[in-house]
Nucleic acid binder design. Structure first.
Lengths: 94, 94
DNA sequence: CGCTATCGTAACCCGAGGCGTTACAGATTA
DNA sequence: TAATCTGTAACGCCTCGGGTTACGATAGCG
């Protein structure tokens, strides 16, 4: 299990894609073809990056969709690990 | 975009975890602490691997939860890419 | 001081998806 | 034949992504 809470992908979008170019949340949302609410939810960590959103980001910012989803996986996994002990699972293989 | 349709993670589970050990779907489901229906849906590609399920798999089969989720991401992403052209996205950065 | 823009968010509506239980039909095996 | 295993349909429940509308707060500008 990772030691520290990985940052939410939304923070990375904000600091690496919007701020450097001086992009407004409203402008970015329009560019991504998504509602302002949807983008805002992501930027503030209230929504995750869906596969479709990852593709939108990859097109708009010329990046890798996979990298966005990987970050989301790290984030989701870290939080899921927090409830690991609550899972009743039996070892089935060595 | 990847050229070929990546296999559904469920197929990997079946061929790499259950069959080698002669595990029954019913037995595996019980071991994983999940309903038989849930596991069956995954094995037959009708459900994806959730973060929680990835952790269950990692415990039961002594594997990496991350690898399961990565495979799921590859799968989801490939399918999402199929609808790439339908997305109205504007390039916002070089 | 007003006007305008930006932003976060709440309230709703939808559809999708994960998970559970029950139940049934088909196949396989003892 | 009887028991087991399997896929799956039919429900219900809850979460979550996404859309629209609308409100209050903040900040910039004429």
């Amino acid at each position: 299990m990772r030691m520290h809470n990985p940052p939410h992908p939304g923070e990375i979008i904000k600091s690496l894609c919007l701020e450097p170019v001086g992009l407004t949340v409203t402008e970015a949302a329009e560019g991504l073809g998504v509602s302002r609410k949807t983008l805002s939810a992501i930027l503030n960590g209230r929504s995750g990056i869906s596969p479709e959103m990852a593709i939108r980001l990859s097109i708009a910012f010329n990046t890798s969709a996979e990298s966005w989803l990987s970050q989301q996986v790290q984030y989701d996994l870290w939080h899921a690990e927090q409830g690991r002990k609550a899972l009743k699972v039996i070892k089935l293989a060595a």
